[in-house]
């Protein structure tokens, strides 16, 4: 009796546990599947991340500022401390005092008020205003400062798959879809040896730290500009 009962009871036992076994099976398959696809796409362009990117592109208009892009509602995100000795600056700091866009248009207020809108004279005044806006001076006080600045990337040079030189600008999509920023809102960045941004990183917000060089601040406008050589960089979303 006992010998007959034993296998039977074991088999009921096993039958009873079939369900957890099936669950385990399903889980193992899922784990294996996820494990392989997730791991296999850890290259430059993970599928999940790119779908996030796609929504980013939908929700953020070209020309979005950093705050709009990161949806911080003007509240500064808790910032990662810049490397030792580097001071975090804002894009407004790159404009010398007395030359902000508001200052420039203030200079033209009277003349704009005096002309008939749409007349040739008016066009002339606006052209002058635009020219002055385009040629905003750089801020010589920043020369040699070790700074950290966040912004968007217009790639210039690649090494393999990585962006190694780029123009840093304050607006998303500046190079392609919206009017480009003036010279004093553009920083030419050369990364130090071994550093690089992937194309996906270069599509989002990045931070850059390094020593700012200011060229032609007081001499020739045509050579003016901010440069950071030997820069370090990274994606801004770590903030």
């Amino acid at each position: 009796m006992v010998t007959v009962m034993n296998p039977r009871s074991t088999s009921t036992l096993v039958r009873g546990r079939r369900t957890p076994l099936a669950v385990l099976f399903a889980m193992a398959v899922v784990v294996a599947a996820c494990g392989s696809t997730a791991e296999s796409t850890t290259g430059e362009l993970p599928a999940e991340e790119s779908s996030v990117d796609a929504t980013t592109e939908q929700t953020h208009a070209f020309g979005a500022s950093l705050d709009e892009f990161l949806e911080t509602d003007g509240e500064k995100p808790a910032s990662a401390p810049p490397p030792d000795g580097f001071e975090e600056i804002e894009w407004e700091d790159l404009v010398p005092p007395g030359s902000t866009p508001a200052d420039i248009s203030a200079k033209f207020d009277e003349r704009i008020a005096a002309v008939v809108p749409g007349s040739p004279e008016a066009n002339e005044v606006f052209a002058e205003l635009q020219a002055e806006y385009d040629n905003q001076p750089v801020n010589p006080d920043l020369a040699g400062e070790a700074i950290q600045l966040a912004g968007f990337v217009a790639p210039l040079t690649y090494s393999g798959e990585l962006v190694t030189e780029f123009l840093l600008v304050p607006y998303f999509g500046a190079c392609i879809h919206v009017p480009p920023p003036p010279v004093n809102q553009t920083v030419l960045v050369s990364l130090r040896e071994g550093e690089g941004l992937t194309i996906d990183e270069s599509w989002g917000a990045v931070w850059v730290s390094g020593t700012l060089t200011v060229d032609g601040a007081e001499t020739d406008l045509a050579t003016a500009g901010y440069t950071i050589s030997d820069a370090q960089t990274g994606a801004y979303d770590g903030y």
Binding site: T41, G43, L45, S50, P155, Y158, I176
Partner: peptide, 24 residues
């Protein structure tokens, strides 16, 4: 800007590559 346009171009065609990856 060649660099920026290359990056944009790569992003347009990289979808195909992601699909290939998912298939494999």
């Amino acid at each position: 800007l060649p660099g920026a346009t290359l990056a944009e171009f790569w992003r347009t065609i990289s979808t195909i590559e992601q699909i290939l990856f998912v298939i494999s």
